[in-house]
């Protein structure tokens, strides 16, 4: 198979609906929380490193919050339905 062919195949593989991944939505909440917690942890470590308590702690917590929202948004914006239902939905739209 040519390089181009395998590339196209990879694309279509990626475009295929993966309903199993929808279970990840269950963990959206804990992902969000852990992003904030990780922000605090990284901030705490940086503060210890540079002796700047509490600047990095607060800054990284805010960054973790932003990142958490971004992550959850990315997760929820690509819900994959099973193939048939997706086609039905597309038909309804058109």
């Amino acid at each position: 198979m040519t390089e181009l062919g395998s590339e196209a195949r990879k694309k279509s593989e990626q475009a295929k609906p993966k309903p199993a991944l929808n279970f990840l939505l269950l963990s959206a909440g804990s992902m969000f929380t852990s992003m904030i917690v990780a922000g605090f942890l990284v901030g705490y470590a940086l503060d210890q490193l540079f002796d700047t308590t509490p600047i990095f702690l607060l800054g990284c917590a805010v960054l973790g919050f932003i990142g958490g929202i971004q992550k959850v948004h990315r997760l929820t914006s690509r819900i994959d339905l099973p193939a048939e239902t997706k086609e039905e939905k597309d038909e309804q739209k058109s």
Binding site: S27, M31, A38, L41, L63, G64, G67, G68
Partner: peptide
């Protein structure tokens, strides 16, 4: 995730993102 104009923010952000992976796995 923010492109090349926010390099310091990106470093911290990616660090947070990476740390949050094992955390969320374990805590959940």
């Amino acid at each position: 995730p923010f492109g090349k104009f926010f390099v310091p923010v990106n470093i911290v952000m990616t660090l947070i993102e990476e740390v949050s992976k094992p955390l969320s796995l374990a805590l959940r």
